[in-house]
């Protein structure tokens, strides 16, 4: 190791300072949202900007947790996130790895075809009809399968695999492994930072599933978290005359309950990242394995 010089030390300090400032700007909304979520709805109506929880109360959270539907939906979303992420990583990484091998015949045309799927969107009706014809309506698989991969993920993951030298797999092939073994036993373990990253992408996407659930899941007992949450944000107190909220001027639940919902919907998935970070730190080095 070579010692840092004086200017480098200054660089380091300034850098850290800047990042901390930036973090404060970024953390403000979290704090703000959290404060409102702990504020008594009546206090909120007194107006002004909420810089700390006023009339501190957990009622907003209690309200959200008050129905079995809500608790079940957390389980469903967790199921979607775990199964979807696992399958998504397998499907996407196998394809991305294959396409990163330059010797593959037809590689270019396949990549072009995948690129087209990023750019062209056929709209919701064809997708809906496909799901129905596959017999997936009302099944959680209708939320998992259509999101197992995307062109965007394939291209990005491929760019990670691109940097893995061909010499590595040649060595494995000499050991009698076929390409599938190479992928499973050598490439994937070497790509943990990439897998952690894309795992996060998948998990977030599955955790946030909303629109597809509206379309494909008729049975409200199978609704994922986001759908139940948004449903709960619409006031349940309605009258005969005004109880028709497809119309303009809908009455919604107090802001404080909305914010509690934001916190509940966000915190679990946010917690995933710190657990993945150790994989980034390790960052298995391709170069060092070669020797």
């Amino acid at each position: 190791m070579i010692k840092d010089s004086i200017p480098e030390k200054i660089f380091g300090r300034v850098n850290v300072l800047l990042l901390i400032l930036l973090s404060l700007v970024m953390v403000f909304p979290l704090y703000y949202v959290f404060s409102i979520s702990l504020t008594d709805p009546r206090e909120y109506l007194k107006g002004g900007i909420i810089l700390y929880p006023r009339g501190l109360t957990w009622d907003n959270y209690e309200y959200l947790f008050s129905t079995p539907l809500f608790i079940r939906s957390i389980g469903i979303s967790a199921f979607l996130a775990i199964v979807g992420t696992t399958l998504g990583l397998i499907v996407t990484s196998s394809l991305a790895y294959t396409l990163s091998r330059k010797r593959l015949l037809g590689r270019k045309i396949i990549l072009l075809l995948i690129l087209i799927t990023i750019l062209f969107h056929p709209g919701i009706i064809p997708n809906y009809l496909l799901i129905r014809e596959l017999g997936l309506m009302n099944s959680l698989w209708s939320l998992i399968l259509p999101a197992l991969s995307s062109g965007w993920n394939v291209f990005l993951m491929k760019s990670f695999f691109d940097s893995i030298p061909a010499s590595l797999e040649e060595a494995a092939v000499i050991d009698g492994c076929n390409d599938m073994h190479v992928w499973w036993r050598i490439i994937l373990p070497l790509s943990l930072p990439a897998l952690a990253t894309f795992g996060l992408f998948f998990a977030v996407a599955y955790w946030n599933v909303f629109f597809n659930a509206v379309l494909y899941i008729n049975d409200f007992k199978k609704w994922p978290l986001q759908l139940v949450l948004r449903q709960m944000l619409i006031d349940s107190n309605t009258s005969a005359g005004g109880g028709n909220i497809l119309e303009e001027g809908q009455m919604v639940n107090p802001q404080s309950i909305k914010m509690a919902a934001v916190i509940i919907a966000t915190i679990p998935i946010m917690m995933v990242y710190p657990f993945l970070q150790k994989h980034f730190a390790k960052g298995v080095m391709v170069g060092s394995v070669k020797e």
Partner: peptide, 16 residues
């Protein structure tokens, strides 16, 4: 190895 992925794109991206 590419088959599951290609199958996915064919089914969920190209058929619609």
């Amino acid at each position: 190895l590419a088959l599951p992925g290609l199958f996915f794109f064919l089914l969920f991206k190209y058929i619609p």
